[in-house]
Amino acid sequence: MATPVLEIRDLHVSIGEKEIIQGVHLTIRGGEVHAIMGPNGAGKSTLAAALMGHPAYTVTSGEVLLDGEDLLQMPVDERARQGLFLAMQYPAEIPGVSLGNFLRAAVNARMGEEQGLSIMAFHRKLMETMKSLGIDPSFAERYVNEGFSGGEKKRSEMLQMTMLTPRIAMLDEIDSGLDVDALRAVAQDINRLRGPELGLMIITHYERILQYVEPDFVHILIDGRLVRSGGKDLVAQIEEKGYDWLRAEAGLPAGTAE
C-alpha cells in the first residue's frame, strides 16, 4: 500500500461566528512525526477535532485530502475507517459498554465486514496487544473510560490506536495530566507504532513528551496560524524563550491568548 499522506490546504475552522483556525497548510506523510505546539487557546485541539469531524466545528474553507480523498466530505465514522485516528484529550465515558466490546465494533468497522475478525480471533488479538503494551487483561472488561484515571484514559487511547492501525493519527495532549511513569509508558506505545505506515501529529504545549518521542518536524500554532515550522531544535527554543518572540516575528499582537 502507498505511504499514507494527509494534506491540509488553507484550512479555516469556526465555532459559531468565531474563526479559530485561520488558514493552516500542513502535509503529514507516513513515517513522519509532526509536533504541533502553541500556547493555550491557539487552536491546536480545534484543528484536530475539526479534522476528525466534530459537529461543534465548522470548516468554512480549505481542503483536506487523506490519501488523495476529500476528507471533509466524509462523515466522522468514514474518516476513521479511511485510517484517521484522534486520541482525545478528554475521551467520553460510555457507561455500560465494555472496552473490549467497543474495540471489537471499532476493529470490525475499520477492517470492513469481510475482513472482520471472529470473536475468538479478536479476543486473541486484543489479549496479545494488551500484553505487549503491559496492560492488565481485566482492563477490557471495564466500561469505556468510566472511572479511568487520567493515565488509564491515555493508555486506553493508545491501546485503541494500536488495535486500529490508523494511517494518520492525531494525538491531542496525550501527555496532559500524566506523571513521568505514565508519560514514559504512553511514549513507548507511540514509538512502537512509528514506521512508514503511520503519520503522526502530536499536539502538545509542553516539550516533555517530545523528549521521549522525537519529532521530525515542529510547527508552532498561534492564533490559528502556523507561524513557524522547523526541526526539533525549535522545541528547545520554545522551552527557553516561550512563544512571544514568535508572535512578534509573525506580526501578531503580544499575549492575546488567554
Binding site: M52, G53, H54, P55, P75, V76, D77, R79, A80, R81, F85, L86, M88, P91, A92, E93, I94, P95, G96, V97, N101, F102, A105, A106, A109, R110, Y143, V144, Q160, L164
Partner: peptide, 27 residues
C-alpha cells in the same frame, strides 16, 4: 460527545446508538 467518540473509531451512527442504548440498559 459519546456519539462522536464512537464514530471517531469508525463505528457507524446507527450501531453507535445501539451500543449507547445497550450500555444504558446494561446495569
Amino acid at each position: 460527545e459519546q456519539l462522536f467518540y464512537l464514530e471517531s473509531r469508525g463505528i457507524p451512527e446507527p450501531l453507535a446508538i445501539e451500543m449507547i442504548v445497550a450500555g444504558f440498559l446494561a446495569p
